[in-house]
Write a protein that binds this DNA or RNA. Structure first.
Length: 303
RNA sequence: GGUGCCAUAGCUCAGUUGGUAGAGCAACGGACUGAAAAUCCGUGUGUCCCUAGUUCGAUUCUUGGUGGCACCA
């Protein structure tokens, strides 16, 4: 391959359970390259079964990055992911023209492709204090505070969404400046080419696959995995489909069968939410997961 | 075979003293730059089983069907 051509990041994305993993491995093998996982939950080594981490055999065949590399006890977010992936890509592009990134974490994909604003980390104490105030004083009080500190953001933010209010206040208090003044809203330049390949299935088939995979996770021991994590259930990372429903069951709020049904239902909702996000991204070229030849052809055209 | 009950959204069901209907679940859509598998917002999608009557008007009342369930034979 011609080394003078720009390096290319091939992003395989799509809703959960659509078949991204197996296709990404075949494509990575064909182009003799490696895979970056873009999955905000497979990052954590404590959550293997519930996040559908690929088989060891598959992982050993093709080098994977960002799978089970972090701990649920670490603070992690899309900005850290952006920085770590860009750093990794620098090294990978020294030996590969193509790198495959695969996953369905929408914000994380955007962070890698478009960048994310440079904001300071939030002290855990501040986060806790503001959350407690939200509980005690109610959202109205914090809204009023945001109106004083950052009237511009107050005007455009979804005032009913507590997480948005809290985060804006966190940034205001940490930096001493308004949140809106630090939002660049600009797309960062990348020195590599990006091809976004979207995978989608007929809705019925996607749901069948999701339902089946949840059953398989239960057989594989998801309940025990969740039980081991139960003591840490208040970590935000464990506020994840597949775990929180089982925590409810452990707490006696529902039967095991109801928890499993709830996992399926919430996974289907998650898939829909992913599709809503991807739908507005006009850079994505859509395929059926079995259109492997067409996808390979498309990538080859860029080489 | 006889008698009784039921038939309304994808499912379970409510309701209309006659003015074409609504809950839960499911489904569907949207927002979203540092918790993102998170968080937040929105949408009822219908030959009210069919037929013939009564009526200005029938999903509702009446006749006759069809299907289901129960009981009696």
């Amino acid at each position: 391959m011609n080394k003078k051509l720009p390096h290319t990041l091939i992003i395989l994305l799509g809703p959960t359970c659509v078949g991204k993993t197996s296709l990404s491995i075949r494509i990575a093998r064909l182009f003799e390259t490696e895979i970056i996982s873009c999955d905000s939950r497979q990052l954590f080594r404590e959550m293997a079964i519930g996040t559908a981490v690929p088989d060891k055999v598959l992982l050993e065949n093709i080098p994977h990055h960002f799978i089970q590399t972090h701990s649920i006890f670490d603070i992690y977010n899309a900005a850290k992911f952006e920085a770590e992936v860009l750093d990794k890509l620098r090294h990978m592009f020294e030996i590969h023209d193509f790198v495959v990134m695969t996953g369905g974490s929408m914000l994380y994909i955007d962070a890698v492709c478009k960048g994310i604003d440079d904001l300071p980390d939030i002290e855990p104490e501040l986060r806790t204090a503001l959350s407690e105030r939200m509980q005690k004083e109610g959202i109205e009080q914090l809204r009023a505070e945001l109106k004083l500190l950052d009237p511009a953001y107050y005007r455009e933010v979804d005032l009913r969404n507590p997480v948005r209010i809290l985060h804006a206040l966190e940034i205001c208090y940490t930096t001493g400046k308004s949140f809106s003044s630090q939002r660049s809203k600009t797309v960062k330049k990348r020195n590599f080419r990006i091809i976004k390949i979207g995978l989608n299935l007929d809705r019925r088939e996607l749901y069948d696959r999701i339902n089946r995979r949840v059953d398989e996770m239960m057989i594989a021991g998801l309940e025990q995995e969740a039980k081991n994590l139960y003591p840490h259930r208040h970590l935000s990372t464990l506020n994840t489909v597949g775990y929180r429903e089982l925590f409810d069951y452990f707490d006696g709020h529902c039967s095991k069968a109801e928890a499993v049904e709830k996992i399926k239902s919430n996974t289907r909702k998650y898939a829909r939410k992913q599709l809503t996000w991807f739908r507005k991204d006009t850079d994505i070229q859509w395929f059926h997961p079995n259109q492997e030849e067409e996808i390979v052809q498309l990538i080859s055209n860029y080489g």
